Simulated scan of single mutants.
Amino acid sequence: MNAVSLVVQAGLVAKGVLLILLSFSLMSWTLIFMKFRIFRRGHQESARFLQIFRSAKNLSAVFEESKRFAKSPIVSVFQEGYQELSRLVKGNQGPANQWPAAHESKAAAADMPIYQEPLELVSRTLQYARMKEVAQQERNLIFLATTGNVAPFVGLFGTVWGIMDAFSSIGQAGSANLGAVAPGVAEALITTAAGLGAAIPAVIAYNYFLNRVRRQATEMELFGLEFLTLAERILARSR
């Protein structure tokens, strides 16, 4: 008796359980492939953007280039920070015109108390953008966690029902021979396997993507610090 025969010969309850588990599995795999593509493209575009950002001499040109990397979470943080920084230096020699040299950092540090409040605004903007991106990346991951937690219990329900059916068959047949208990036990085993088959990939994928989210959150935080250093110099020059 193969798996297909077990499913065809299963009772109505077992088929309902299998249908639910199949739905969980299909939605999980769809989400897994979708998230994998999003994370892979975001990582590639972030790497390309950082090369441009660290080698550029004109911040406004970097902003224009950043529009080509819409899937990068770091780009979203940069754009929010750039727009806030541009508003703060509006009417002066803004970030779109000059990129301060590294040797000017000491002079900027001397003026830091004067620009502490504007710099705090930029910092809050970067933090908001980073939190928004993390929330976006975590979107729908809860479904994978739910599948990993719920699917085994749904399969267990089918298992219990199959065992109950096996005992019912024993009572009807008046004998505990293999022919009487085999159908119920088979239903129990197939639903158990289906529950694990839906849960295991979901749990693995959830842990993997959660780790990717944390890694990208760290990368965005490091970029935010890098951008704040640059913003401090620009605000010092725009006095």
Rank of each mutant, 00 (worst) to 15 (best):
residue 1 M to G: 13
residue 8 V to K: 13
residue 11 G to F: 06
residue 14 A to P: 11
residue 15 K to A: 10
residue 15 K to F: 09
residue 16 G to K: 11
residue 18 L to E: 12
residue 20 I to E: 06
residue 25 S to Q: 05
residue 31 L to S: 09
residue 33 F to C: 03
residue 36 F to L: 15
residue 36 F to M: 13
residue 39 F to Y: 10
residue 39 F to K: 07
residue 46 S to E: 13
residue 47 A to F: 06
residue 51 Q to G: 09
residue 53 F to Y: 15
residue 55 S to V: 02
residue 56 A to W: 03
residue 60 S to G: 14
residue 65 E to Q: 13
residue 66 S to H: 10
residue 67 K to G: 11
residue 73 P to F: 07
residue 79 Q to K: 13
residue 80 E to A: 15
residue 80 E to I: 03
residue 81 G to Q: 07
residue 86 S to D: 10
residue 87 R to Q: 09
residue 87 R to W: 01
residue 89 V to K: 05
residue 91 G to P: 10
residue 93 Q to D: 08
residue 93 Q to M: 05
residue 95 P to N: 08
residue 97 N to H: 12
residue 98 Q to N: 04
residue 100 P to S: 07
residue 107 A to Y: 05
residue 108 A to I: 08
residue 108 A to E: 10
residue 109 A to L: 13
residue 111 D to G: 10
residue 118 P to H: 03
residue 119 L to R: 12
residue 121 L to I: 07
residue 123 S to E: 15
residue 123 S to W: 00
residue 125 T to W: 01
residue 127 Q to S: 12
residue 133 E to S: 08
residue 133 E to F: 00
residue 135 A to N: 13
residue 136 Q to W: 01
residue 138 E to H: 08
residue 138 E to P: 02
residue 139 R to S: 13
residue 143 F to H: 01
residue 143 F to M: 13
residue 150 V to K: 01
residue 159 T to G: 08
residue 163 I to S: 06
residue 163 I to Q: 02
residue 166 A to M: 00
residue 167 F to E: 04
residue 168 S to M: 05
residue 173 A to C: 11
residue 174 G to V: 06
residue 178 L to A: 15
residue 179 G to C: 01
residue 181 V to P: 11
residue 184 G to Y: 07
residue 186 A to Y: 06
residue 186 A to S: 15
residue 188 A to F: 05
residue 190 I to M: 12
residue 190 I to T: 13
residue 195 G to Y: 01
residue 195 G to L: 08
residue 197 G to L: 13
residue 199 A to Y: 00
residue 199 A to W: 02
residue 204 I to A: 14
residue 205 A to E: 11
residue 205 A to V: 03
residue 207 N to C: 00
residue 207 N to W: 01
residue 208 Y to A: 11
residue 211 N to Y: 03
residue 214 R to I: 04
residue 215 R to E: 09
residue 220 M to W: 10
residue 221 E to D: 14
residue 224 G to M: 04
residue 226 E to M: 00
residue 230 L to F: 12
residue 233 R to V: 08
